[in-house]
Write a protein that binds this DNA or RNA. Structure first.
Ligand SMILES: [Mn+2]
Ligand SMILES: [Mn+2]
Ligand SMILES: [Zn+2]
Ligand SMILES: [Zn+2]
Lengths: 158, 158
DNA sequence: TTAATTAATGAAAATGATTTTCAATAACAA
DNA sequence: TTGTTATTGAAAATCATTTTCATTAATTAA
């Protein structure tokens, strides 16, 4: 198992410390706890849901700080901010628990359930790369990332 | 040119009348004007932008009605509601002006510009179909539609 | 056509997520 | 330890969207 960027659960001070310091950010309890929450779930949590979980352990942490921290983390490229159309933004680690990396989403338009689509068909990745390059040059557009959302009805709702 | 669903600009009462009646909806001036606005632009307008344009012609039409109408139109499957991450929803006709159909979007994270990506690579469509089928069965999920958003920097912003 | 029915509307108020303000706090470099 | 200043929490502000409710007007029945 590669150790370069690897990170498990009991890794001491947290792999993100260096990243923070490098950007001139201070390491604070709210920031650590918010990252812990994100690293402990497979869900796509809203700011308020994250707040509630942090709040259980550190009741002094406020919702405002959660919003601010999530913005910082998104700017640093540590978390993705996702909108599935239910009016609130949702967040997930770019490099999620169990080393989960880039993936796409199935969203149930009825109950709001979100399924990560990780069974990545290799052809898809290739085609996406090719498409990104074509679009990049055709529209003189520097593509940094992309999102694919499938909307429909989950097994319970259809 | 097929006439079945075809529609140009000077088509009289509007091709959507039948659709409305079929759903039990009444045909009103606000609804007609909102559809006109959407049919006259290639942009991805917010509710307020649509409101401003309708308001110029019919100052009595209110923003509330624009929101309500857009919801109806989305439910009817005549318009798509899109979120590009700037905090306001944007709308476009499913079957846009010049007969533009399904397409994807390039979004500039700096200036917010949205580019329709219609230069559709045929392989992409095929692969997407295949992927939809695979996901459908693997997750027992009924996929109704999908969105692909590429985020990055446009020629002016990079 | 006209009257009756009721969907649709507009204004104002309410909502809910997110952002801003600002004085107090705490991280950390020296 | 101390000084500097980034970060914080609470409260207020903002902004898009929704709800409420009395009025209006599209459609239907006569
Ligand atoms: Mn995910
Ligand atoms: Mn478009
Ligand atoms: Zn569902
Ligand atoms: Zn731009």
């Amino acid at each position: 198992m590669p150790r370069g960027h690897g990170r498990g659960f009991g890794m001491g001070p947290g792999w993100w410390h260096g990243r923070f310091r490098g950007c001139g950010y201070r390491i604070t309890i709210p920031r650590q706890e918010i990252l812990k929450v994100l690293n402990q779930t497979e869900e796509h949590l809203s700011a308020e849901e994250i707040y509630l979980r942090v709040h259980k352990v550190y009741p002094s942490v406020g919702l405002t700080t959660v919003y601010r921290t999530l913005e910082v983390l998104a700017d640093m490229g540590l978390v993705f901010r996702l909108e599935f159309g239910d009016g609130k933004a949702r967040y997930e680690l770019v490099e999620g628990p169990k080393g989960k990396l880039h993936h796409h989403h199935l969203v149930c338009t009825d109950c709001g359930r979100v399924i990560d689509y990780t069974d990545f068909i290799s052809e898809e990745k290739e085609l996406l790369d090719k498409t990104e390059k074509a679009l990049s040059s055709r529209h003189n557009f520097k593509i940094l990332n992309h999102q694919i959302h499938f909307y429909g009805l989950c097994n319970k709702c259809k």
